[in-house]
């Protein structure tokens, strides 16, 4: 088997407000023998700019891909948004000649040129496809047999399926399978593939709060003791905003929201401290 080595694409939100995701991801990936190379000189993936200027998004994203091509490594993104943007740009540039010519012209300003030699993956894809379930299972030292959780994969590692296409967008199973490897039970609930709402929180809070409220209630209704995410935006929506949602609707969820890498890390035998569990707003008491 070839060496598992990736350029880590961290994006903006994780270093800005969710280092617990980065800390725990580095721990578990290292334990699985996945080598991470720091991505030099990267910029924001481009996603937040798509709504204001599609060409700007494509070019910012393509610049990152060119850097990865120079390094000769595939990209591993921890954030759904970064994955989706880089992956979509990579596919568009590979398949759409007209767009590629336009973006190449923009890239040339920086003496860069797109080659189409690398692949973009999300953490979930790396774990499920490259590392593999068997290998992960072998690293579980303290199975979380007493724990029942629910998962929220988030939109951008599922849709649009014409660009992602790695999991079933209507009934995603990758994250569920990964959760089961930790020994925890993964419960089904209503509206699993629904959006967290966070992308529009800058212009409207009411709708994202409604969506997150539904999700938290649905997860609670099936008896989940924690919600597991793999995206910093979804995580912020359900964890950091949870108390505000509780106040807005006069409800109480008390639902811990863990990054998948924290759940796996616990099962591997890392301590809560090593995994940044204390940084979560809603403190889990079940582990």
């Amino acid at each position: 088997m070839s060496e598992m080595k990736y350029l880590l694409f961290m994006g903006c939100t994780i270093p800005y407000r969710l280092s617990s995701y980065e800390v725990s991801a580095r721990k578990v990936l290292n334990n699985l023998g996945v080598k991470l190379v720091e991505m030099p000189e990267f910029n924001c993936c481009g996603l937040p700019m798509d709504i204001v200027n599609h060409d700007l998004m494509l070019t910012l994203s393509a610049r990152n891909i060119c850097i990865a091509e120079r390094e000769g490594l595939n990209i591993l993104a921890l954030c759904n948004g970064c994955f989706s943007t880089l992956n979509e740009t990579n596919k568009i540039l590979k398949e759409d000649r007209e767009t590629r010519e336009k973006v190449e012209k923009y890239l040339a300003e920086n003496n860069m040129s797109y080659k189409g030699t690398i692949d973009v993956k999300h953490l979930v894809h790396v774990l499920a496809e490259d590392v593999g379930y068997e290998k992960i299972k072998g690293t579980v030292k303290k199975p979380l047999n007493q724990v029942s959780v629910a998962q929220h994969s988030g939109c951008h590692i599922l849709r649009p399926s014409k660009y992602v296409g790695r999991d079933d967008p209507e009934n995603p199973t990758m994250l569920k399978n990964l959760i089961k490897l930790t020994g925890a039970q993964c419960l089904n609930y209503a509206g699993e593939t629904e959006c967290c709402g966070n992308p529009i929180i800058g212009v409207n809070e009411e709708i994202p709060f409604q969506l997150a409220r539904e999700k938290l209630n649905n997860v609670k209704a099936v008896g989940a003791q924690a919600l597991i995410t793999v995206c910093p935006f979804c995580h912020v929506m359900f964890d950091a905003n949870q108390s505000r949602i509780e106040r807005a609707f006069n409800e109480k969820y008390n639902m811990p929201v863990l990054h998948y890498t924290q759940l796996l890390g616990l099962a591997m035998g890392f301590t809560q401290e090593e995994l940044g569990i204390s940084e979560l707003r809603v403190k889990p008491t079940i582990f």
Binding site: D50, I51, C155, H156, R159, P160, S161, K162, P169, T193, E194, C195, G197, N198, P199, I200, V203, N204, I207, P208
Partner: peptide, 12 residues
């Protein structure tokens, strides 16, 4: 127009 959350359910 700015309320679309880009969940892409419509696209799929």
């Amino acid at each position: 127009l700015w309320l679309c959350s880009t969940c892409y359910a419509c696209v799929d």
